[in-house]
Write a protein that binds this DNA or RNA. Structure first.
Lengths: 219, 219
DNA sequence: TTAACGTCTGTTGCATGCAAGATGTCGTGA
DNA sequence: TCACGACATCTTGCATGCAACAGACGTTAA
């Protein structure tokens, strides 16, 4: 019916978002026919979107049985954080090598905003700023392949939700902010090696926080 | 017609292989109809395989115009090697942390074979051993996500051809072998940090060699 | 000669129908 | 009560037909 920029792309975005937001709980069965009716298209664009989501690891298609929303195991979460650490570390390294560019300015502004959010205790606002901070690092690295792999990785876990939960821990906001400041200082100081490992340490720190309360509501 | 484990999977593997082997030259148009006839199926499995290849970056689909084999630019090649360095670095780091496992034994055997191949000047054989060496590092890291991302990365470039060409450079075999030896020594020495950076150095060294003669026959 | 226009072919995007297989259910027998 | 088997139903896999659009090519008019 309504297209936009192609039915497949529309279904893909909306369905992925619905899964990440927990609208389809892990283990839930996703029937192509039902989705086709829900999205007002035929099964064809649904199938194409589902296969993309399968390659992203969000759903699992069992031939002739059904497709199910996947729940990342604790082990997979560990693996994802290990990859996130080296990818974002590479981003920080490359950005430091580039010197002062537009993204470094934006990162400075991001940190200023973050300080205000932390001072006000606004965890929701800070979560968004954290998301932007990491995105700016990757974007500033100016490596399209890295950005693509990073996006693919971030799609795999409901990362925003994890961060929001993490930031509820007392004192986490302040520690996180200090780590961000440390990373950016080394980037503007053109200390590529230092920036990379500051970023890695930060990711590992965030991983410890995220995986300590893995018995959350939705799990 | 003949299925195997699904027409889509069969088409995907064969078509990807054909592209990587240069059977379809970059810029070539891939018509769904023609491929359907060639592979003896309908357009549906062809379309599914093509979309997968598009997400892997091997082809580009222009809506209502055609799908074309993509040619990685020099910049993309640089980006790919940067990613390869950190991913394989992570693999070496994780393998070093694991201590002695089956893969370390296989790597030792691989190096012994490599020494014989280098002594005999058998570049073709050594190229295969190089491929196995890097694969064993990733496999031994015991991180499924890393392995998946790595495979995805390696699909994007005709990596084996590049290595074969690289190994034609005089003295390259010996240098490469010494670097492999260095990496494995640090892995068995449980020097995770050293292993990671030895691996990175090796990849960068290989990148320099690969990108110095980029005016090869097929480009 | 050249530029503009209409047509015609080739391409992908999507809808739909049919086939193959897996799973749950209900009935039947012991 | 329990085990087992046939069947009904639901699922995805694939084939096919039609529509929309881009681009090439020939035609025509200036």
């Amino acid at each position: 019916m309504q297209a936009g920029r192609g039915a497949k792309a529309r279904v893909l975005d909306q369905l992925r978002d619905a899964i990440i937001r927990g609208e389809h709980r892990p283990g839930t069965s996703l029937s192509e026919g039902a989705l086709a009716e829900a999205y007002g298209t035929s099964r064809t664009p649904i199938r194409e979107a589902i296969q993309q989501l399968q390659s992203e690891g969000l759903v699992e298609v069992v031939p002739r049985v059904g497709t199910f929303v996947r729940q990342p195991s604790r082990r997979e979460l560990t693996e994802l954080f290990q990859l996130k650490a080296v990818l974002e570390g590479l981003g920080a390294q490359l950005l430091a090598q580039r010197g002062l560019v537009a993204e470094t300015e934006l990162l400075q502004a991001n940190l200023a905003d973050s300080e205000r959010a932390v001072a006000a205790g606004d965890a929701e606002r800070y979560a968004q700023l954290v998301h932007d901070f990491h995105g700016l690092i990757i974007q500033g690295a100016d490596n399209h392949m890295l950005a693509a792999q990073y996006d693919n990785l971030m799609h795999k876990l409901a990362y925003h939700r994890i961060v929001v939960n993490t930031l509820r821990h007392p004192g986490r906001l302040e520690v996180s902010l200090a780590e961000h400041r440390n990373v950016l200082d080394r980037i503007v100081g053109k200390d590529a090696f230092g920036a990379e490992f500051a970023m890695r340490d930060h990711v590992q720190s965030s991983q410890r926080e995220a995986m300590s309360n893995r018995s959350d509501a939705e799990n």
